[in-house]
Design a protein around this nucleic acid. Structure first.
Lengths: 163, 163
DNA sequence: CCATCTGAGTTGAAAAACTAAACTCACGAA
DNA sequence: TTCGTGAGTTTAGTTTTTCAACTCAGATGG
């Protein structure tokens, strides 16, 4: 009886979570997507402890999710802030998926506090309609239900024995 | 100068993370999506400490993500296992989004270890093509880029002052 | 009947992560 | 020279997480 399974430890979900799975990490990314740049902005928006914020920002920078950038207010010295890299902005679908899930199952009685809309930053082609996350296969089938998909081993799969 | 912003604390992302944002929670959900049922399966697949696993499962059950179900092996006493509720299965897009992000930026040099394919559990209409997460607006614009969307206040929005 | 096995949890102590608040450091302004 | 600002750091106390050993309930077997 073959009971090999894909090794659950050698998995991109686990690796992704080792980068953004710590407490606060995804909220820092969310605030950055919402325009936060400065240490103090992240601190006051989130209420995270300052030392932990410093550690998290450093982790995110090391992982390539954020980048440390100098800025200078007129009549002030140069300081450093943080912005998302392309890798960091690519977390947007993850955050939208979490938002959607939270809206559906844990919403404020009043309804969602945030609605994500289709509105490009440059203002062109703005339709302003709400945005959803959908699962779509390469053959073009869209809006797949959670049970319409399965996991198969990829080229980097390791295997383990057992149930 | 108005500087009101949507309160970042009263947000479905934060609420979602308060349920599934702790270490191991999403990995437990992932294993459950992959068929794990029993305490010992989660334990040996993930290598999580047993007491923590017990705590997490209880949290997930309380939150409505999982459900405690009796099972009985022939010639053994009744025991309890865990399965996802519909609410738990609805986390699939979140996990696929994380998987995709991990594959893109943190992959094993060999390539992804898991490929998600379009294959319904009942076997009908199986095309087996790889599945991706895409952002799509209600007007039908699909494959939106991270910068093509913005956040706007919803009916449950609270506001805060400051930068 | 009694010892043994199995698998789901508990317990308890040590290590690591998190919080809160005070402190440092560099510089521009008064 | 002193004060204010904003990015961090330090320190001390609390909470989480880890690891390993233990309990508990029933089936099995002598």
């Amino acid at each position: 009886m073959e009971t090999r399974r894909i090794d659950p430890v050698n998995c991109s979900v686990a690796r992704a979570l080792s980068v953004v799975g710590e407490r606060w990490s995804l909220l820092i990314v969310r605030e950055a997507l919402d325009g936060a740049r400065r240490f103090g902005e992240f601190h006051s928006r989130l209420g995270i402890a300052r030392n932990l914020l410093a550690t998290r920002l450093e982790t995110l920078v090391t992982a390539g999710v954020m980048r440390r950038v100098p800025y200078q207010e007129p009549g002030d010295r140069q300081r450093f802030g943080y912005e998302l890299t392309e890798q960091g902005r690519a977390l947007r679908p993850t955050l939208v998926a979490l938002l959607e899930w939270g809206d559906r199952y844990l919403a404020d009685p009043q309804g969602p506090s945030v609605i994500v809309r289709h509105r490009p930053v440059d203002g062109t082609d703005s339709c302003d309609e709400p945005v959803k996350v959908v699962l779509e296969c390469a053959a073009g089938h869209s809006h797949l239900a959670p049970d319409d998909i399965c996991r198969t081993p990829g080229p980097g799969a390791r295997f383990v024995e057992g149930p």
